[in-house]
Simulated scan of single mutants.
Amino acid sequence: MPVVILHDSTLRDGQHAVRHQLDRTQIGAYAAAVDAAGVPVVEVGHGNGLGASSLQVGRSKISDDEMLTTAREAMPHASLAALLLPGWGTTGDVRNAVRLGVDVVRVAAHCTEADVTERHLGAVRELGAEAQGVLLMSHMASPGELAEQCALMAGYGAQAVCLFDSAGTFLPEDVAARVRAVTAAVDVPVAFHGHNNLGMAVANSIAAVQAGARILDACARGFGAGAGNAQIEVLVAVLERYGYRTGIDLRALADAADLAEETLMPAPPTVDSTSLVSGLSGVFSGFKKPVLAAAAQHDVRAWDIFVELGRHRVIAGQEDLIPDAARAVAAQGAGR
């Protein structure tokens, strides 16, 4: 069986669940624990990536520099990764991140807009770091379209390409079809990042590997936006049951997950009704908290706001449309 590389995004995607308020102590302790467990790549930063700390999507408790430096100092073995979304982050942020010790930079775009990643992927390669291309909200494109977009990113210099199930809406057969199409179109490793809104994140990740993916994203206790991500300690255990090799010490990883539950999160994520409708509607999992706030303000159901957002095919980065959707639901008379 081939080796599967795990990317632990607890300290980046998990930030969505705590309004980006992780501090130095929390980041340093968890980074040290997963480094000791042999996790090969650890992604750190604001939930929306480099340069994203803002009033619109939430201010981080500490700066990008502090987060990256803290994690780098705590990890003598693991590669340090960062996410960048053009429009939030700049090539200047890329240069600064690499200077601070980032080894892998993932440049992300909406699933049909790979062309916006060209300059940033080129900058990562020029700086000597590993460049990876990410397609967000990948359920909004067909397998063939995703293959074309991933081929573009590989042409721009991406050394791996990743499909994010940002809304947690896929079933295993959806993932398999897309991963097969992408692996046939590119000569670089394919990655998959699953969310758990329908309770399928681990199953979808296994489907991705069986279809040819060689990199999987996951988080301790599933810590992440909405209903959370694939649960890394469970995913590693299941991969081992299937015979895949990860190079991770599962016992030490379980200890790191216990630490994460104790120190990073108010409670492990669950598939509640809000997360469920997010997955059914195909709406970004990170909208959960602002949708709940808008529902309370306008005295409407969060479920109905998600349905309205899904009807308009709203994507990550369009948080400013949530109040409009809440007002539209209120005008329709769909109160609590």
Results as ranks from 00 to 15, higher is better:
322 I>T: 03
217 D>I: 00
232 I>T: 09
149 Q>I: 00
261 E>W: 01
210 Q>G: 10
198 L>M: 13
300 V>C: 07
32 A>K: 13
284 F>D: 10
240 E>T: 05
169 T>E: 08
167 A>H: 03
109 A>Y: 00
65 D>N: 05
53 S>H: 02
193 H>K: 04
319 E>G: 13
256 A>W: 05
37 A>T: 01
274 T>P: 01
110 H>G: 07
273 S>C: 06
134 V>D: 07
181 A>H: 04
86 P>A: 13
103 D>F: 11
58 G>D: 07
100 L>K: 07
20 H>F: 09
182 V>D: 10
321 L>T: 11
288 K>Q: 15
141 A>Q: 09
298 H>S: 11
124 V>G: 08
265 M>F: 07
220 A>L: 07
133 G>P: 01
325 A>L: 07
269 P>H: 05
43 E>M: 10
268 P>F: 03
250 L>Y: 10
275 S>H: 11
38 G>N: 05
90 T>F: 09
67 M>D: 02
75 M>S: 08
69 T>H: 02
328 A>F: 01
276 L>H: 13
160 A>C: 02
167 A>S: 15
300 V>T: 06
193 H>N: 12
313 R>E: 14
113 E>G: 01
271 V>A: 08
278 S>M: 14
53 S>V: 03
268 P>Q: 00
35 D>K: 01
158 A>P: 02
272 D>G: 14
144 G>C: 08
183 T>D: 01
35 D>P: 00
84 L>C: 13
270 T>E: 13
142 S>V: 04
231 Q>N: 08
328 A>Q: 12
173 E>Q: 12
335 G>H: 15
316 A>Q: 13
191 A>R: 10
157 G>W: 05
303 W>L: 11
305 I>R: 04
201 A>Y: 11
64 D>V: 02
250 L>V: 09
153 M>N: 00
146 L>T: 02
305 I>K: 06
319 E>A: 13
292 L>I: 15
10 T>Q: 01
317 G>D: 05
129 A>N: 04
177 A>E: 09
142 S>R: 06
315 I>T: 14
32 A>S: 14
212 G>L: 09
270 T>I: 15
89 G>E: 05
116 V>R: 12
210 Q>C: 01
240 E>K: 10
316 A>H: 04
13 D>S: 07
280 L>C: 12
293 A>L: 13
205 S>E: 07
90 T>G: 08
289 K>E: 14
77 H>I: 00
126 E>I: 06
70 T>I: 09
162 C>L: 12
